[in-house]
Every structure is written in C-alpha cells, then in structure tokens.
Computed example of a mutant assay.
Amino acid sequence: MTASLSATRSRRNRARPARGAAATFRYTVLIVGALVMVTPFIYMLSTSFQAQAYVLTFPPQFIPNPATTANYSRALTTENFLLYFANSLVVAVVSTAVSVLVSSMMAFAFARFDFRGKELIFRVLLTGLTIPAVMLLIPQFVLATKLHLLDSLGGLIVFYIAGSLSLNTFLLRGFLASVPHELDQAMQVDGANAWTRYWRLALPLAKPALATATIFTFLNSWDEYPIALTMINNPNTRTLPLAIATFQGQNATQWGLVFAASLIAIIPVIVVFLVFQRYFVQGLTSGAVKG
C-alpha cells in the first residue's frame, strides 16, 4: 500500500509541472491575442484626441501629447452629424424591432405547428444565409427603384428587415423548439389560442434568444454601408456610416476626425450590448444547437 501511494504521489508531482507549463502557455496565448485585438482600438482612441499634425508620427503615440477634444467638437458640429446620427438610430431601432417581432412569429410557427412543406419552406428561408450580401446589391437597387424606395429611410428599413429575417428565425426557432410542449398543452386546456401562447408563453421564455437576435440585428443595421451607399443620394437621408465616409477627403484623410466620429458611433452599439449581454451567450448557444 505504501509503495502504491508513493508511486501515485510521484506521478502527481511529475504531472504538476506539465499542467503548469500548459496553463502558462495558454494564458500567454490569450494575453497576446487580447493585445492584438485591443491595440488597434487603443490607437484609434489615442488618435481621436490628437491634432492632424501628430496623427502619422512614428513611432505611434498611444498617449496623446498634446491631447485635444477638437476632433469630437468638429465631428458633432460638421456636416449635419447629429442628423445622420438620428437617421441611423431611427433605421436601426425600427429595423430591429420589426425584424425581431416578425422573425419570432415565424420561428414560433416553425417550432410549434405542423403544416405541409414546413421543412422545405424553412430550408428555403435559410438559403438567405448562404448568399453574399454584395451579390444582392443590384437586384435590391432595381427593386427599390421599382417600388420608389430610393433616398428614403423607409427603403433602408425594408431591406434591413428582409436581410435579417433568415438568421433571426434560425436562432429563435432553435430556442423555441426546446420549450416543453406540455406548457402549450396546459395553456390550450385553459382555452389559450395560438396568439396567447405566443405572446404570454413563447416570448417571455425566449428572452435569451430575443436578446441575441436584437444585438445582431441592431449591429448590422447600425453599421451597414453598401446598401445605404447604393440607395441614398439625398444628404438629408444619409446614415452615420455614409457621414463618416465624407470625412475622408480626396487628397488627405483627417484620421483624428474619422476616429472621433467612429467612437461616437460605437456608443449605441455598446449600450445595446450592455443591456442584453446577460442573455447573449445563452441565446446564441441555444439557437446554434437546437432545431
């Protein structure tokens, strides 16, 4: 017995350095990866507080000296920046709300009802995830021209909603399919119709998946550039990505101004993520493995 215990302790002692080395290597890789990811953002933040004359200095200054807030003042007062910010906010909020509502209804139908061609319709819907968005620019422009949706925020909202329905329905269907059917049956016994079961049962239980869909849809609508560039010519209906692009001149780019405007544009995305992040990981994993 004593010999066996000694052998076990010896193996454990030999294993500890190996585990320690593996842990050290793992943490080193994670730290290096984190630095690679964070460094561009830190440089962007630093540049936004620098005058144009100090932007392209080498080596780059991560602590601005001298620091100035002039770029932020110019960004907020130049080229109707606040109007473009409001335009983007309206487009993103309306697109997100309508897309999440419609896709949750579709997901509830796919997860809870049996009807002819259900799987075929769902697979056709998912083909939207396989088509690159760039390939749809010309058809979308032609369709917008026929429907008189050019140069309007409503036109952007329509196409943003259409572009997000596939992913949102996929995520929400997977989550709703995991809800026990016994809950539906219990509500049916009490006389609840399909709308009541959707509104009072499915939506409250699907908060994690709804939060995930909300974050994805808001981010895509807020940052979208190619569709807006194709369909918007009127300066009064520009969105924020188009406004930031105007800060890049033909001969020189005012990087401090561009970075300051970009950091301002990040604020709503951070707010949305902070509000819904507690449900984000749970909703994402549930939608990915169910259905």
Rank of each mutant, 00 (worst) to 15 (best):
A7N: 13
S10N: 06
S10A: 14
R11V: 10
N13P: 04
T24I: 11
F25R: 13
F25C: 07
T28N: 05
G33Q: 03
T39H: 06
Y43Q: 10
T47D: 05
A51N: 15
Q52T: 07
Q52Y: 06
T57K: 15
F62E: 00
T68Q: 09
R74V: 11
A75C: 03
N80W: 14
F81I: 08
L82T: 02
L83W: 04
L83E: 03
F85R: 06
N87Q: 00
T96I: 12
V102I: 06
S104L: 08
F108V: 02
D114H: 12
I121S: 06
R123G: 05
V124E: 02
L126R: 00
G128P: 09
V134N: 02
I138P: 07
T145C: 10
L147R: 10
L150K: 11
G154R: 07
V158K: 03
F159D: 00
G163M: 15
F170G: 00
F175E: 00
P180C: 08
E182Q: 10
M187R: 14
V189E: 02
A192R: 07
A194W: 12
W199C: 09
A202W: 00
P208H: 03
L210D: 00
A213L: 11
T214H: 05
I215S: 01
I215H: 01
E224S: 05
I227H: 06
I227Q: 09
N234Q: 09
T239E: 10
P241M: 09
A245R: 08
F247A: 04
F247K: 04
Q250S: 10
T253P: 13
W255D: 01
L257W: 08
P268Y: 03
L274G: 06
L274V: 11
Y279V: 00
F280I: 01
S286W: 02
G287E: 00
G287K: 01
A288E: 03
